[in-house]
C-alpha cells in the first residue's frame, strides 16, 4: 500500500493522473499478450529506479529515433524522465563533442554489464569501416568496444537488425547488421522504422521480468512479430472472397479490397501493424490503401521488391 501511495504521489507530481497511467499499463499488457493481472506489476516496474540506456546511431536515417519519440504509452517525456535513463543519444542529448563522449564513457564504466545498448543503423565494414566515423573512430570499432560491455544489445530497426537499406544490393559499403558485423547476439526490433510500442514493450518486459522477451529464429520478440500481417489484416476476408484491388484508381480501392495483386507482402511479413497500428492507433499502410512492403523482414529491400509486383 505504501508503495502504491508513493507511486500515486509521484504520478500526480508529474501531472499524470492515475487513470492515464493505468491506461497505458493496460495497453502495454495487451501488446505484450499478458493477462490483466499483470497490470499492477507493470505499473510497479515503470516506477522503479531507471535502467541506464545508451543509444548508438550508425549508418541510419534517424527514422527509428524519431519513431521512438512518437511513443504515447508512455509519452516520450515520461520514458526519458521517469522510466529509463537515456545517457547517450546523439539526436536529443544536450552536450556535443567531448562532453557527449564523456556521457557515453561514464555510463559504460559506471555500469559495466548493466546498461542496455540500443543500436540504430547498419555498420559499414568495407575498407575497415571508413564509411562511417564518430570522433576519429569507425562505427565498427565503436560497436566492438561498447556492445560487448552491455547487459544486452537491442537492434532497433531493420538496418541494425539485418543490414537494411544500406545493405541493399549492391551494398556499396559492405554494410552489415550488428550481429553479423561484430558477432554478438542481439534482440531485434525490425521495421522501417519499427512501431515504438514494440520497443517500449521490450523495455517493459525487461523491467517486469528482469529479462528480455522470448524471440523467434530471427531474433524478434514473439509478442510483436509472432504472426503474419496477412493473418491479422482487416482486409483478409476480401482475400478469402477473391476481392482484389488492381488499380489505385478503382472502385475496388475505394471499397478497401485486398491489396495482394498490387504487391502486398503481408502474407510473408511477421509484424503486429494491423493490430496496434501506428501513431496512437491512427492507421497503418494497408489501411491507407498501400501494400505492405515487408519492412520487418531480413533483406526486404531486395527480397520483397519490386514492391508493386504481386508475390
Amino acid at each position: 500500500m505504501e508503495h502504491e501511495d508513493s507511486v500515486k504521489q509521484r504520478l500526480e507530481q508529474r501531472g499524470v493522473s492515475r487513470r492515464d497511467f493505468m491506461k497505458y499499463c493496460t495497453l502495454l499488457s495487451a501488446t505484450m499478450g499478458l493477462s490483466s493481472s499483470f497490470i499492477p506489476k507493470i505499473a510497479e516496474a515503470l516506477t522503479a529506479p531507471r535502467p541506464p540506456v545508451v543509444y548508438l546511431a550508425f549508418a541510419e536515417c534517424t527514422g527509428c529515433a524519431e519513431s521512438t519519440l512518437r511513443t504515447m504509452y508512455p509519452w516520450i517525456d515520461t520514458l526519458l524522465l521517469d522510466v529509463i535513463s537515456l545517457d547517450y543519444h546523439e539526436t536529443i542529448m544536450a552536450p556535443s563533442g567531448e562532453a557527449a563522449e564523456k556521457s557515453l564513457h561514464d555510463t559504460v564504466t559506471k555500469y559495466p554489464g548493466k546498461f542496455i545498448c540500443v543500436v540504430d543503423g547498419a555498420i559499414p565494414t568495407a575498407e575497415n569501416g571508413i564509411y562511417g566515423m564518430i570522433n576519429g573512430k569507425t562505427f565498427l570499432d565503436i560497436a566492438k568496444d561498447i556492445c560487448p560491455k552491455a547487459l544486452a544489445t537491442i537492434a532497433i530497426g531493420t538496418c541494425a537488425s539485418y543490414g537494411g537499406v544500406a545493405a541493399a544490393a549492391p551494398n556499396p559499403t559492405a554494410a552489415k547488421s550488428v550481429k553479423d558485423a561484430i558477432g554478438i547476439n542481439t534482440l531485434n526490433i525490425p521495421g522501417c522504422p519499427p512501431n515504438p510500442i514494440n520497443f517500449v514493450g521490450t523495455v517493459v518486459n525487461y523491467l517486469l521480468f528482469g529479462k528480455l522477451p522470448d524471440v523467434d529464429d530471427k531474433g524478434r520478440p514473439l509478442f510483436a512479430y509472432g504472426q503474419t500481417i496477412h493473418d491479422q489484416c482487416q482486409r483478409r476476408s476480401h482475400f478469402e472472397n477473391g476481392e482484389f484491388v488492381t488499380s489505385f484508381a478503382s472502385d475496388e480501392a475505394k471499397k478497401g479490397y485486398c491489396l495482394y495483386q498490387v504487391g502486398c507482402k503481408g502474407p510473408e511479413t511477421y509484424n503486429n501493424c494491423p493490430v496496434v497500428k501506428f501513431n496512437d492507433g491512427t492507421s497503418w499502410p494497408v489501411q491507407a490503401g498501400h501494400p505492405c512492403i515487408g519492412c520487418s523482414e531480413p533483406n526486404f529491400w531486395d527480397k520483397m521488391s519490386p514492391f508493386y509486383k504481386s508475390l
Binding site: 527514422g63 524519431e66 519513431s67 519519440l69 512518437r70 511513443t71 504515447m72 509519452w75 516520450i76 522501417c192 522504422p193 489505385f248 484508381a249 480501392a253 475505394k254 471499397k255 478497401g256 497500428k277 501506428f278 501513431n279 496512437d280 491512427t282 492507421s283 497503418w284 499502410p285 494497408v286 489501411q287 491507407a288 490503401g289 498501400h290 512492403i293 508493386y308
Partner: peptide, 29 residues
C-alpha cells in the same frame, strides 16, 4: 507526437509514410 498523426491519417504512418505512389496517393478509403 500528436502532430505526426496528421501523416498517419492520409499516409498510414509516421515516420516514413506509406501512402504515396507515382501517379498520386493511395488513401482511397
Amino acid at each position: 507526437a500528436r502532430t505526426a498523426r496528421m501523416h498517419a491519417i492520409f499516409s498510414g504512418k509516421n515516420p516514413h509514410v506509406q501512402g504515396l505512389v507515382v501517379g498520386g496517393v493511395t488513401c482511397a478509403t
